[in-house]
Every structure is written in structure tokens, then in C-alpha cells.
Simulated assay, not measured.
Amino acid sequence: MKAIWMTMLLSAWLLSGAALAERGPETLARSWCANCHGADGNSVSPLFPRLAGQQAAYLQQQLKLFREQSRSDQAAHDYMWGVAGGLNDAEIAGVAAYFAAQQAKPNPAGSGVGGGMAAGREIYLRGKGDAVPACFACHGPRAEGTEQAPRLAGQHAAYLLKQLHVFASSQRPSAVAMQAIVHGLSEEDLNSLAAYLQGL
């Protein structure tokens, strides 16, 4: 009886291994990523970023940083180190391409963060003083992102604000330029910028 039970367990393990070996990017996105980010990448919780329409190159970079455990912010540690640790380069590229191809849905403007959207627009399009360049120079005129910088349009304001605070530390080592920029902005500026970007 024990031998039969062990054979059944071994068969199930082999079948699950084969299934994982054949997992495609859409299957990964809809089975793993969807729990937090939504099946189409339009997450509803401000705890988790929206991935729909995000730049594929940026998603690949971030997934590799999660896999290497180079991003040390708390959310990266709690949610992404374990998930990304099991992905190979082809799977990372496939998942990134899947979410990049999804349609980004509008995000209700200003929810979760105080007003100041006009001030946020001013910072985004013109910068602030000599220390803070205009955000659109890297992220695009409508915050759609570029090959070098992520899409910010429609992102949850609360998530953006949290990441802007993380940039002020050394927890995201690949974002050295952002560390200097964030130090040139007040808390009111950061709130206004996040609210403006969510509404785009």
C-alpha cells in the first residue's frame, strides 16, 4: 500500500514538473501574477503596481533585479523575490511582453492622495528649479514611458508615492538618477506629482 502511495505521489510530482516546464508567458501571468496585478495587468489595489501597457524592457529589468534580489525595498522582498526567483530569462521576457501588450485602463484621478494635480502637472512638464528636471524628458509627454524609463500614466498614486520614497534611499540601486531628483522635491510636491500621474 505504501509503495502504491509513493508511486502516486511521484507521478503527481513528475506531472506537475512537466506542466511547469511547459508554462507559457500568458499562463504564468494569469496564474501567478494575476493574484496581485490582475490578469490584464490593471491591478485594483494600490499596494501593487499596474503592469498593463508598461514598457517591456523595463519589466524585464525589474524582474531580473527581483530575481537577483538587488531590489531590497520591503515590498520587493515580501512579494517578488520568491516569485521571480523561479523564472528563467525566456519566461521573464515572455511575461514582460504579455503585460506590455495589455491595454492600460483609466485610473480614477487623485484617489488616495490629496489634490494639487495642477502643481503635479507643472513639475512633470517643467521640473522644479535647477535640481529637478522635467519628468517628461525621460518618461514621455504623456508619461507613457520609453525604452529607458517606465510608464507612469495611470499608475496608482499611493504606489507611486511609496516608490518615490524608496528612491530617496539606496533600496533601488539601478535608479541612481531618481535618488538625486527626489531629494529636490517636498512631500507636497511628491503628493501632487503622484496624483497627477494617476489621472493621466
Rank of each mutant, 00 (worst) to 15 (best):
Y159K: 10
V95M: 02
A21F: 04
A90T: 07
Y98G: 01
A84L: 08
G53Y: 05
Q148M: 14
L63S: 07
L193V: 04
A12Q: 04
A39C: 01
A168M: 03
W13A: 15
V83Y: 02
I92E: 00
A18Y: 04
S111E: 11
L28R: 04
R30T: 05
A56P: 06
D40M: 11
A177L: 14
G86R: 01
G120D: 10
L10A: 12
A19Q: 15
G145W: 15
G145R: 12
Y98H: 03
P141W: 08
G41S: 02
E122R: 15
A157D: 09
I123G: 08
L185D: 01
A153M: 12
A97K: 06
P49T: 12
G17W: 05
E122Q: 14
L160S: 08
K128T: 13
A137V: 06
P141A: 09
D40H: 06
S192M: 15
Q55R: 09
Q54P: 02
A3M: 14
E188R: 07
F99S: 00
W13D: 11
A90C: 00
R126H: 11
F66N: 13
R71D: 11
G38I: 13
G127N: 07
K2E: 11
A118V: 00
A119S: 12
L10G: 09
L190D: 05
L28S: 04
N191S: 03
L160G: 09
A84P: 04
Q60S: 07
K2D: 13
L161S: 01
P106M: 06
G85Y: 02
A175D: 14
L125V: 00
P108S: 08
A56N: 09
V95T: 07
Y79N: 13
R151T: 03
A19S: 10
A97N: 11
L10W: 15
A57R: 10
L87T: 00
Q163Y: 07
L197G: 09
T7K: 01
S170P: 03
Q60N: 13
S170E: 02
G110R: 04
M8K: 02
L152N: 12
